[in-house]
Design a protein around this nucleic acid. Sequence first.
RNA 1: CGGGGCAUAGUGUAAUUGGUUAACAUUUGCGCUUUGGGAGCGCACGAUUCUGGGUUCGAGUCCCAGUGCCCCGACCA
Length: 418
Amino acid sequence: MKQSQLFTKTIKEKPKGEKSINAILLQRAGFIYKEMAGVYSFLPLGLRVLRKIENIIREEMESISGQEVFLSVLQPKELWQKTDRWSKGIGKNVMYKCKGNGEIGLGPTHEEMLTDIVKNYVKSYEDLPLYVFQIQTKFRKELRARSGLLRGKEFGMKDLYSFHTSEKDFKNYYEKVKKAYFRIFKRCGLEVILTEASGAGFTKEFTHEFQVLAKGGEDRIIFCPKLTSHFAQNKEISKFKSGNKCPVCKKVLKESKSIEAANIFPLGTKYSEAIGAFFQDKDGQKKPIVMGCYGLGISRLIGALVEVFHDKKGIIWPEEIAPFRVHLILLPAKKITPLKKKAEKIYFNLQKAGINVLYDDRKDKSAGEKLVEADLIGIPWRIIVSEKTLQKDSMEIKKRDKEKTKLVKMKELCSINF
RNA sequence: CGGGGCAUAGUGUAAUUGGUUAACAUUUGCGCUUUGGGAGCGCACGAUUCUGGGUUCGAGUCCCAGUGCCCCGACCA
C-alpha cells in the first residue's frame, strides 16, 4: 500500500488523559480510534493486525477440527432466562430495546445460543464430539473500562465451544486446545504462562488462563520462573506467595502483573441441561451433552502485544502479525526521479514476491518525519531509498528492533528472508 | 458503584487567580528556502472555553447540577 493513500495520520502528542501504553501508541500511530471509554474503531493499520491474528487463530482452530460459525449479536431474552443468566446480571448488563421485540440481549458470550442451535442437530452419540468456534464482537457492561484495548465494553473475541459424550472425551480435547493456544501465541510472538484460575462458578476444579507478563496488566499471578508453564496460579486463588518455593521444583516463586489473553474451562452439563441439549448414547440412554468453553480476546491481544513490544519510539510488531512486513521509505532529494523509480521497482518486486509493503511515497515530508513515523508504526523491516543509497546503487535495510543497518543491492533483495 | 483528578481551535497546552480583542505550539492551506531522525521564514484558515442553571457591572476563571474522559478500589459470568 502506498502511504500517500493511507487516510490516517500519526499524532505527535499523546492523547489527553491516556496513561496506558497501548492506548497511547495505537492511537498515535493511527491503528485505532477511540469512540468512547472502552470502545474503539479499528482503522486500516489496526484492522490489518486484527485480520492477521484472526487468520492464525482460524488455522489453529481448524487444525483441531473446529468449525467456524458466525452467530447473531442480538440474542433472545428467553434463552438467557432458561439458564437464569438474564435476571442475574449478564443479560441485564447490555441490552438493546427494539420495538415489537421488547428487550433483546446484546451478546456478551454465546453458550446459550450455540447450545440451542446444536440441540437441533445433535441427537445421537454418533453426532459427537463437535467443535464450533466463531470470531465475533462481544459486548459487556464493564463498570470501569480501562487501559485501552485491555478492558473494553465492546471487544473482539474468538470463542470455541466443544460438545462431548463424556467427561473423559472432554478432557482429551481440553488438552488439545491448550496446545493449539500455545501455537497461536507463539505465532503471535508472545510468551504466555498457563495459569490456574478459579472455576468462576462453572466448576470446582481449576480453569486455565493464558497470561502474558506485562506491567500494564491488571491481573496478578504467582509463577515459577524456571519453566514458564509448569506452575502458575492467579493470585486470586493462590495459596502461594512470591518468595515461596515452587511446589513442583522448589525454585523461588515470583509474582508479576499480567494480562489474561485467553481462558479455557469446563462447562459440564450446566448449559446442555438448562437448554435441553441431550443425545442418545450407545446404551440407549438419554444424556446431557458435556461441554467446554475456550475464549481468546483478540482485540485485547493486540493491546497486550503493544504493552510487551514497544520502545521509546513506538511499537515493535512481531513479524507474523505486523500490519505490513516491510516499510519502504523514499527519502526526499533534489533529484527525486531516479530515486522514485528505484523505490517503485523495489515496491513492485516485493509485492510480486508476496510480501506486504507499506511504501512511504509521500512528497513534502521531511526525512526526519518519515523515519520517526516509521518507528512509531513499528513495521518489522525498514528499507530506505535515498541519495546516499543510490550512490552505492543499493538500499538500506534495518530491522525495527535492531540498531544495525545494512546496504543491499537490488539483485540481493530476493535473497533476503523477510 | 465508592474515592481522586481533568474538561479551552483537529491535536497538545496557556490565560496575572474575576477584568475587557482567549494566547502559544502543532496540524491544515499558500509562497520561498531546506532535504538522513517529527526542518526554517512569512501569510492565512481554525473556538458558542463540555452542557444547563446561578452569583457579578463583568465569568475560561467563582457556586450548584449534569455529562464525558483518565487513574485507584469494588465488580469482571
